[in-house]
């Protein structure tokens, strides 16, 4: 399937996504191209094909962040924080499920600290939490992770700038054209509208595509809350006529 010969995708709306040059997010200034992107009028197989990860061997707890860091360490503790299920469906812009695609995620712990050698934030590391997960979507495009809700954290942009609680999410989709990295925010978080990274988007409706919604129906009583985060990747166009 991912060879996608002759396939095309709906054009990416570059004004819906954040543009490259966003001075409110200071790091973007020196890292944004000043020249326009060169548009490929007829994408080739190099753009419309992509990797299929159905043969990537994964551990049984790769999508369970409550358990996957302690594995092999002889530890039996659980991470600190609000236990949550994060789940959703990956579809394309026409609502067609994206099956068997790789979804990867990473996040800070409940105190807002990442297990990364570069993160020096005051909040302590959690000995039972790594902060990375991955899984493949099922036949109908569904994915699921079990984790804890990450904490907000400060970062140097303005003098007092904080990231809202967020989980970084990476999805491959059927081709390198659909490749997408985004962040899931939590419904109702007052830090969302004042975050310079969220504000790289111009359209408030586009921000709504990144908000995970509390889903009581999928929560587990006396165990964990659930947040639903559906992901939409570029629509695959059907070709009905031969190009001559």
């Amino acid at each position: 399937m991912p060879l996608n010969k002759g396939k095309r995708f709906v054009e990416r709306d570059r004004s819906w996504h954040p543009v490259a040059y966003t001075p409110g997010y200071k790091t973007a200034v020196a890292r944004s191209p000043s020249q326009p992107l060169v548009s490929l009028q007829s994408p080739s197989i190099s753009e419309v094909s992509g990797p299929d990860f159905q043969h990537l061997r994964m551990g049984s707890h790769d999508n369970d962040l409550l358990l996957n860091y302690r594995e092999g360490k002889g530890q039996d503790g659980l991470p600190v924080g609000e236990r949550i299920i994060m789940f959703g469906r990956v579809t394309d812009q026409f609502g067609k499920p994206v099956p068997h695609t790789l979804v990867e995620m990473w996040q800070a712990n409940a105190g807002g600290r990442y297990r990364h050698k570069k993160d020096q934030y005051l909040a302590p590391l959690d000995p039972n939490f790594g902060g990375v997960g991955r899984c493949l979507t099922d036949e109908d495009g569904w994915y699921r992770f079990r984790t804890i809700k990450p904490g907000p954290y400060p970062w140097p942009n303005g003098i007092n700038t904080w990231r809202p609680s967020h989980i970084h999410v990476s999805v491959m989709g059927p081709s390198v054209s659909t490749r997408l990295i985004t962040q899931m925010y939590f419904e109702g978080d007052p830090l969302i509208p004042i975050c310079p990274i969220v504000r790289t988007l111009n359209d408030p409706e586009a921000v709504q595509t990144m908000v995970g919604r509390l889903d009581m129906a999928h929560s587990r009583p006396m165990d964990c809350l659930a947040y639903r985060f559906d992901i939409v990747t570029r629509g695959e166009l059907q070709t009905y006529f031969e190009n001559v």
């Binding site: 709906v10 579809t91 988007l201 586009a206 990144m210 629509g235």
Partner: peptide
């Protein structure tokens, strides 16, 4: 048509 989920850094 649905809108694509927006990109973030």
């Amino acid at each position: 048509m649905l809108r694509e989920t927006a990109s973030q850094t």
